[in-house]
């Protein structure tokens, strides 16, 4: 028989564990700690790559208006494709480190929110790329059909 006497908002309090079964053990903490270090490394590489890109574009921009326009285009493109995942990775690393150090659930929540955003971003980008490939493939088939 189902228990209908539970309050409607039971389990909606985000400050309390809604799953007494899942525990953040010492082993998991160790995995998270190591993951934050690697995530920081990836983020630093990403920022370095962006800095290199901007530096190269600034040099190219000295070649005239076309260089400036091309540079701006690439910066916006790189901003979309590199900056956001790098930023999410950096935030994940820093927030999880803080969460582990200070036993701070809010920081840990922010860390996993950023990890979710990172994966979401990569997934959406992959869907867009696959769609472009599919359209290009269909276009190619159509052109080949016309030429035959």
């Amino acid at each position: 028989m189902e228990d209908h006497n539970q309050p409607l908002d039971e389990g909606l309090n985000s400050n309390q564990s809604s799953s007494p079964g899942l525990q953040i053990t010492a082993r998991i903490r160790q995995f998270w700690r190591e993951s934050t270090q690697w995530a920081l490394f990836f983020a630093i590489l990403g920022f370095l790559y962006l800095a290199l890109l901007v530096f190269t574009l600034l040099q190219g921009a000295s070649s005239g208006a076309a260089g400036v326009a091309g540079g701006l285009f690439v910066i916006l493109f790189a901003g979309a494709f590199i900056f956001f995942p790098t930023w999410f990775m950096f935030q994940f690393s820093q927030k999880l480190k803080l969460g582990l150090r200070e036993e701070n659930n809010t920081a840990a929540e922010a860390a996993f929110r950023n990890l979710r955003r990172l994966y979401q971003f990569a997934g959406v980008l992959l869907i867009i790329l696959l769609s472009i490939y599919a359209i290009a493939f269909l276009f190619l088939l159509l052109m080949m059909g016309r030429n035959m």
Binding site: L12, S14, N15, S17, L22, I24, G99, E103, E109, F112
Partner: peptide
């Protein structure tokens, strides 16, 4: 005073 899986964490883990 300890880190514990919250509802928001679980939602984010599931989507991730």
């Amino acid at each position: 005073n300890q880190l514990a899986p919250t509802r928001e964490m679980r939602q984010n883990w599931y989507e991730t």
